[in-house]
Amino acid sequence: LHIEINVNGLRIELHNVSEELAERIREILEKVDDREEARRLAEELIK
């Protein structure tokens, strides 16, 4: 499954994740104000 999410102008592509996991990642990242911090957090979440 390939999912693309957009959060605060940051486009993140997720591969091989469930829709539920992608939604949780999006919800978490929406709470982060700083774009660079959101990017770093996204990288950690999808490892």
Rank of each mutant, 00 (worst) to 15 (best):
L1S: 13
L1T: 13
L1V: 13
L1Y: 10
L1N: 13
L1A: 12
L1H: 13
H2F: 06
H2A: 11
H2D: 12
H2W: 12
I3W: 10
I3E: 04
I3H: 10
I3C: 02
I3P: 05
I3G: 05
I3F: 12
I3T: 08
I3L: 12
I3A: 06
I3K: 05
I3N: 05
E4P: 03
E4V: 15
E4A: 11
E4S: 14
E4M: 12
E4C: 09
E4G: 05
I5K: 00
I5Y: 04
I5W: 01
I5M: 10
I5E: 02
I5D: 02
N6P: 01
N6E: 15
N6K: 05
N6Q: 10
N6S: 09
N6T: 12
N6V: 15
N6Y: 06
N6R: 04
V7C: 05
V7R: 02
V7G: 05
V7M: 08
V7W: 11
V7N: 05
N8Y: 00
N8S: 07
N8I: 03
N8A: 10
N8K: 04
G9F: 01
G9H: 01
G9W: 01
L10N: 10
L10E: 07
L10V: 15
L10T: 12
L10C: 08
L10P: 01
L10H: 15
L10Y: 15
L10Q: 08
R11K: 15
R11G: 05
R11D: 05
R11N: 10
R11P: 05
R11W: 13
I12W: 14
I12M: 09
I12K: 00
I12P: 01
I12C: 03
I12D: 01
I12E: 01
E13H: 07
E13I: 12
E13F: 12
E13V: 13
E13N: 07
E13Y: 11
E13S: 07
E13P: 08
L14R: 00
L14D: 01
L14Y: 06
L14N: 00
L14G: 03
L14S: 01
H15K: 08
H15A: 07
H15M: 09
H15P: 05
H15Q: 10
H15T: 10
H15V: 11
H15L: 09
H15W: 15
H15D: 08
N16D: 11
N16S: 08
N16T: 05
N16E: 06
N16C: 07
V17C: 03
V17T: 06
V17I: 13
V17G: 11
V17R: 01
V17E: 03
S18N: 09
S18V: 04
S18D: 08
S18L: 04
S18G: 07
S18H: 06
S18Y: 04
E19V: 14
E19Y: 15
E19W: 15
E19M: 15
E20H: 11
E20N: 06
E20I: 07
E20V: 08
E20M: 07
L21I: 13
L21F: 12
L21Q: 09
L21D: 10
L21H: 04
L21V: 14
L21A: 05
A22Y: 12
A22G: 04
A22F: 09
A22K: 04
A22R: 05
A22Q: 05
A22I: 14
A22C: 02
E23R: 11
E23D: 14
E23T: 10
E23F: 12
E23N: 13
R24T: 10
R24N: 06
R24P: 00
I25T: 00
I25S: 00
I25M: 04
R26T: 06
R26G: 02
R26P: 00
R26K: 14
R26A: 07
E27W: 09
E27P: 00
E27D: 13
E27H: 09
E27Y: 08
E27G: 06
E27C: 05
I28F: 05
I28D: 01
I28W: 04
I28L: 13
I28T: 06
I28C: 02
I28P: 00
L29P: 00
L29E: 00
L29F: 14
L29R: 00
L29Q: 01
L29S: 01
L29T: 01
L29I: 07
E30G: 08
E30M: 14
E30K: 12
E30R: 11
K31R: 14
K31Y: 11
K31N: 14
K31L: 12
K31T: 15
K31W: 07
V32R: 03
V32F: 11
V32S: 07
V32M: 11
D33W: 13
D33Q: 14
D33I: 15
D33C: 05
D33Y: 15
D34H: 03
D34A: 03
D34S: 08
D34N: 11
D34M: 02
D34W: 03
D34V: 03
R35V: 15
R35K: 14
R35A: 14
R35H: 15
R35N: 10
E36M: 07
E36R: 04
E36L: 07
E36Q: 07
E36K: 06
E36C: 02
E36F: 06
E36Y: 06
E36G: 06
E37C: 07
E37V: 08
E37W: 05
E37G: 02
E37Q: 08
A38D: 00
A38N: 03
A38F: 08
A38R: 04
A38K: 02
A38C: 03
R39F: 14
R39T: 11
R39D: 03
R39Y: 15
R39Q: 12
R39M: 15
R39I: 15
R40N: 08
R40V: 06
R40H: 08
R40D: 04
R40P: 00
R40K: 12
R40T: 06
L41V: 07
L41N: 01
L41D: 01
L41F: 05
L41G: 01
L41A: 05
L41E: 03
L41I: 13
L41T: 04
A42L: 15
A42S: 06
A42R: 00
A42E: 01
A42F: 14
A42Y: 10
A42W: 09
E43Y: 14
E43I: 13
E43L: 15
E43T: 08
E43D: 12
E43A: 08
E44K: 05
E44Y: 08
E44P: 00
E44M: 08
L45M: 11
L45A: 09
L45E: 05
L45F: 09
L45C: 04
L45G: 00
L45T: 05
L45Y: 07
I46D: 01
I46A: 14
I46F: 06
I46K: 02
I46P: 00
I46S: 05
K47R: 13
K47Y: 10
K47V: 13
K47Q: 15
K47M: 13
